[in-house]
Amino acid sequence: MNHRLETTALWSAYVLLFGGMIFVKNEHAIHIAAQIVILGLFAISFNILFGNTGLLSFGQALFYGLGAYVTGMIAKKFGGDHFLWALLLVPLVAMAVALVLGALSLRLSDVYFTMLTLAFAQLVWGITIKWYDFTSGDDGIQAIPKPEFLAGGLHYYVFAFLVVTVCLYLLWRLHRSPFGTILKGIRQNPTRVNFLGLNVFRHKLLAYVISSCFTAIAGGLYAGLDGSIHPDMFVWTMSGGIILMTILGGMRSFFGPIIGVAVFVLLEDVVGRSTQYWSFFIGAIMIVVVMLFPKGIVGVSRQFAGLFAKKGDPLEHS
């Protein structure tokens, strides 16, 4: 399929599908849709690091949790009217934290980078659990207040959808910007990028800061969804789940990750309710994807589209 056509199709599908949800009267469906857009933002911003730049962070949950706790703690302490500016504060806090952690961890190569990001996230998770007086520890934070006009499932969904859409638009611009192209270059051949006169580390750092910033916004949005957050938002299985959903959807495509999230969340909703062996089920799906569909749902669709468009321009298979 033509690349531009694919992008247009996916953007339209996104806007129609999730925008159309506002006409759906079913509370449960709206809640599911809200989960998908929020986690979708997390996965797509994570994929700027992973699929584009080739950096496998196992600790992005740190920023998801950070966003949720900054929003949740401020709103809880100062009241629902402060929810919005707390949410505005989230990107700033996240970028500051990412600048420090990125500067420390991006000097490391491959698996050492992965392990260090994991360690940072686990450390913050541990601190959140143990520092009861500040974070309410293992109890998490419940009944986080929101401003009046965001109350109710539908209102909050519209709000989340708009915020996520703006974020996705910005990330999409980044994806196809000169900077985004350089990131792809860094994934494939960092030495050559260096010999283009560019500092690879600084580009990675900016990618890390931007990615973490949007992940934190997703976390902040989550804090308002059910008004309930828990330290487990920081834990490594959260990061692992996002990696899984990203690959399931397709890490070489901008929208791939959110498709993976949608499939995963819907499956969890349908299957998770009817079995206590949900993990087993997820594991089996993961194996099938890894073994048979490593390019994810988007990759498979592209192959199918290519099959039907065989007579077209043989050069067009981006």
Binding site: R173, L174, S177, P178, G180, L196, G197, L198, L206
Partner: peptide, 21 residues
Amino acid sequence: DNIFMAAVAFHGKNWNVLASK
């Protein structure tokens, strides 16, 4: 795109995160 990356680097546009390619 291979040459594009070099040209972007040469013209110092590599930090632009929002412009279209």
